[in-house]
Nucleic acid binder design. Structure first.
Lengths: 221, 221
DNA sequence: CTCAGATTTGCGGAAAACCGTAAGAGTTTA
DNA sequence: TAAACTCTTACGGTTTTCCGCAAATCTGAG
């Protein structure tokens, strides 16, 4: 079982809740941090002092603040730490269920467990910790399906770039120019038109404003 | 001081956190509910039994579930209760800081306090409860500015309706037809064009897709 | 290398959106 | 009631987007 745990979580209500889970499991040393940068420093310092933390429980989204943080998200924090302190186990504890994000975070391998803060967050986190002590991974049941299914429409970098310009108010002519300058291909007006038509069909959108709406709702852009 | 409090909150971590605030204030009877419908029934039942709750602490957003709830949001719940049990004090405890939503909820008068679940949620909730015991209202400091300032661009029902159709992929010709049928005025193609142009200028959008992006980002649509 | 297939491009015409102007309808003010 | 003003509509011309076809270019297999 773990006995030196760091919680990186900005909401203090949740902090208290997590603390209670840990106390239930008779984990003694519990530290917490409301900022990513601070969490990072504590973890590094502890490692240098040869009193390393053995578990990080970490939210994904941190609210911006008057402080300006270098590390702005749990994903960035976990990604750094997985490289620098490979022994550290990391649990992502978040409300984020968007397929694209879950998929990205999980497949990047920065997390040993992914827990959803929902009605069963308490039980779920408990299970995750137990799994991790026996070197298992853990994925919240509600998102297990997401990864296996190919229900996530993947867009290429080219398509995302194109959509970015459309959503920022560039005309097709302007996009044509920009792509030509940046040597992004294909960049003919014809190809741009065609690709946009494809995307509209893919997402069953009748017009470009409609397409933007659909993509925003799916959080693809 | 209150002594019979109901917490309506789906995330159980937060539930635990709130519980701790209440215990700190030596409030004895604490009940909680992870669903709006259930919370509503408990409050009504208690009122009928002459053991009414005197405070409701209520989240705004509840995650959908296999159960289908009639009351889907804290706003709907609070709105119902303020009518049916006027004596009940209501604290909205949420992460929702969007000006439009804060403004709507607060100005509707359904809440006696509005607390943001952030880094200082604990302190903030504590303060709110103390204020309410002396019949004061309470608004989280981070959103106080929002209400006074007129930084919230208010759109008319007409404008919102128009934008709804644009975002759903209707052409200007189609919108013209729909508005004529529904006797929404103005409905000439010319007026629709003009209004859209106005909106683009108001939000500094170059194209309609751009306008949709901006409005989505502002959560206006 | 050569041919087949896919991708990219160019182009012309149709449809939709855009824009300014002026006429018409409805309101307010004197 | 008339004049001033605002809001709505009609209309003509321009720009942008949309669409399909065919030529050109690229790619990979034989």
């Amino acid at each position: 079982m773990f006995n030196n745990v760091l919680i990186a979580e900005d909401q203090d209500f949740v902090n208290l809740g997590i603390r209670e889970v840990l106390q239930n499991l008779e984990i003694e040393k519990i530290t917490h941090s409301q900022y990513c940068d601070e969490a990072y420093l504590k973890l590094k310092r502890a490692a240098l002092d040869n009193k390393p933390f053995d578990l990080l429980i970490c939210d994904l989204n941190f609210k911006a603040d008057h402080r300006n943080e270098k590390i702005e998200s749990g994903e960035a924090l976990a990604s750094l730490l997985k490289k620098e302190i490979p022994d550290l186990k990391i649990i992502i504890n978040t409300v984020e269920e968007h397929p694209n994000i879950v998929k990205r975070v999980w497949n990047s391998g920065i997390a040993d467990a992914y827990v959803i803060k929902d009605r069963n967050g308490f039980k779920s986190l408990e299970t995750a910790i137990k799994k991790l002590t026996i070197n298992d991974k853990y994925l919240a049941p509600s998102i297990e399906g997401i990864l296996s299914k190919s229900n996530v429409i993947e867009l290429s970098d080219y398509e995302l770039e194109l959509l970015k310009y459309v959503s920022k108010g560039y005309s097709q002519e302007e996009i044509h120019q920009v792509f030509k300058n940046y040597k992004i291909s294909p960049n003919s007006k014809s190809s741009i038109e065609k690709k946009l038509k494809e995307l509209r069909e893919l997402f069953e959108a009748k017009t470009n404003p409609h397409l933007i709406t659909v993509l925003k709702d799916l959080q693809i852009i």
